[in-house]
Design a protein around this nucleic acid. Structure first.
Lengths: 231, 231, 231, 231
DNA sequence: GATGAATGAGATTTCATTCAT
DNA sequence: AATGAATGAAATCTCATTCAT
């Protein structure tokens, strides 16, 4: 985006890399806790026990620091998902792994960062938005692959766009996470993951038209009977 | 709460109400676009073409203004949902109405405000959070009612917590909305709503145990066959 | 000072005069309670139950209003002192009247206004100071007259400037008042006035040189004896 | 009291201390000249030739700055009085020292600060008042000690409350100071101190009842004679 | 004459960023 | 390379004063 190379030379070397890691680690905490605007470079420096100037020796500014924090976080998630995915197992088991891992990663520290991405990703002007889109694509890739493979196998329904299926899986997870945060409740990750897949799995099945018709008929008859009884 | 004894009174009357509506309308835009922190009272005043002081004639401060913006937005959504809900129709039709209306309302202007609620609702300290929780409860109430009634009728499954079903419906919608915003794509609301319900409806059905067993058996056999074919 | 006549026409008539009295009465309270800076025209108008503009119909601004408040207050004090002073009685009785009346007038409402005069009277720039000096002179005049008459009669000492005697009488009173305010204590006006005069009366007596010499000698001898006893 | 956890730390070190002294010195001037409300942090920064932010690097806000200014001023006065007091000398000499030192310290710069304390000390709400009361007690302590010792020696009268004697000494001094300020006149400190003690010393003497009776008789006879002569 | 909404200058305070040491 | 004091732009909020109604 910008030619920042001429502005400042960022130190290199083993010690410098450790410093960068430290700054990123603490910055992640601070941004996650406070959000972009309320987080201050002073706070980050204080928690690290270094001077305020030091942060600017390694990063061009608050914005770049924030971008790096989010990039690193995405990288962690993506590599955890990619490496852990049990490709040999049935689709449902893979899906359960995906959901469980997702919930776990986000609940450790992710909600603050998630909020950060959601709110800062939207910011107009010289936004962080451009940076995040490719990251989000990489991050949903394992799920999309899984779904695409299962669909080509006929394991899951082909009558709806894949992006809708993806939303039907990622969406509920995020909603559960927000809810947990908002109400400050504990989440039983294992159980929630199992329930979630139990709930969604039928939705992903290929539509059995005969069955669907029967179900529709049954539903209407039931409703009619109830209504008749009510009158 | 606060000592308002010597504060200037907020004007009342038809013209004042119009002014308040104007300020709220513009503030909604600004908060939605920029988020709480980046939004400035100066910007709001400029867009309105009034002086900065005028905003403070009608609202005690930025925080109160923001709270009012969100309350009004929630009120709109809630009353639209409550008034429009076709109670006489089958559950599936009601659900379709809920999803469609939800998507429509949020796409008009909601995503920015949604982000606002999500990010500011989390803020520590003297946050906006306390204000939002009851609003969020009121806003999900129509859906919860719908689900509860359908469950007591035996129309939808009773083996999972209602909150999970709720997340499975609200979550995908929000995800779709975020996706649409992030990629700046148009959304065909009618089609998306229909697809979404078509997708989720099977998930809400009572579990037909025999069928489920057959499906499980079928799934395993299919997977085994595929695996055998692949080797 | 300024030609304000062309700026605005102040209403006249019986109703207008009542209005002016009301505004001054309330303003006196507000200025006394809050001081010049913290007092607001809004507060004054609200307590009166009139609009903010009305105050400006009768006074050119906050500053003029404050000046008028103080002038009126001085006028009250001065006329009370002038009219009540028992000229026929002995000097000591007159002094007691002066002290008692002074304490009473200031304790009713005066401390706030006294603070106002002390702090605002000092303000640099387009200050209130110029206005107050003649008022203060008029206000100390009865005391100065009393002292001057008594001195010419030989009733009080002539070896020190009158202004010093005046300070020795007014000063303690103000100090007592401030102390009462600061510690929020009640003051028994009658007793305090009597004690004060009992205390100060000897100080005002003509110096009896022979007696003074004896006293000095006595004091030194006493001190020397005490010191000898202590060693 | 306050959440200072994430606030920037106040610099420490020799240079920082010099800076703090500079800020306090200039702030003292500004607060003394203008009073708390009219004094601005901008003015302070400008007189120092530093940016506005710098003041806030060293003090958390205007209020704290003002409190520090007053505390420092009191400390100066108190330590000067405590250290200089000639304890070995006669009470009258000690009193003369107290009065002289007091006048000198206040005339250098004290009147503005005195006004500050008097007017801001009264302020309602989150005032500076609480801070000042203990300071004022410490500041009058040397005088109270002196009076108490002299009274227990029988050197000064015991028929009136000590607080009244204190007011009779401090009050006139303050009055003289105010007068000097208001009229912008020079004060001959040595002479004024000597005169003041000469005036007040008789007032502090133990009451000589016989003498008092004689004086009363003399006064009444004189008055009667004068009256007879006037008729 | 009264009103009271609009104004806008000005005050305090925060904080990312720089740069001399 | 690290420091951390200085900076100054920008933000929120107040309130005396005006003027159209």
């Amino acid at each position: 985006m910008e030619d920042t190379s001429s502005r400042r030379r960022v130190p290199a070397g083993a010690k410098a890399e450790q410093r960068i890691r430290d700054i990123l680690r603490v910055s992640r905490d601070v941004f996650a806790e406070l959000g972009y605007e309320r987080a201050t470079t002073t706070e980050i420096a204080q928690r690290l026990g270094v001077s305020e100037g030091t942060v600017f020796t390694y990063f061009h500014g608050k914005r770049e620091l924030c971008v790096r924090v989010i990039e690193d976080w995405y990288d962690e998630i993506i590599s955890t998902l990619e490496q852990g995915m049990p490709h040999g197992q049935p689709t449902k088991a893979q899906l359960e792994f995906y959901v469980k891992t997702h919930l776990r990663l986000f609940l450790i520290q992710g909600t603050g960062l998630c909020a950060l991405v959601l709110s800062e990703g939207r910011a107009k002007g010289p936004g962080l938005g451009e940076v995040f889109l490719p990251l989000q694509r990489r991050y949903t890739a394992p799920l999309m692959d899984l779904l695409a493979r299962a669909r080509s196998n006929g394991e899951i329904r082909g009558d709806l766009p894949l992006s809708l299926l993806r939303s039907a899986i990622l969406g509920p997870m995020e909603h559960i996470l927000w809810d947990a945060i908002a109400r400050q409740r504990e989440v039983d990750i294992e159980k929630t993951a199992r329930d979630m897949v139990a709930l969604l799995w039928p939705a992903l099945q290929p539509v059995d038209l005969e069955l669907e018709k029967l179900r529709g008929f049954y539903g209407e008859v039931s409703a009619a009977l109830r209504k008749a009884a009510a009158d």
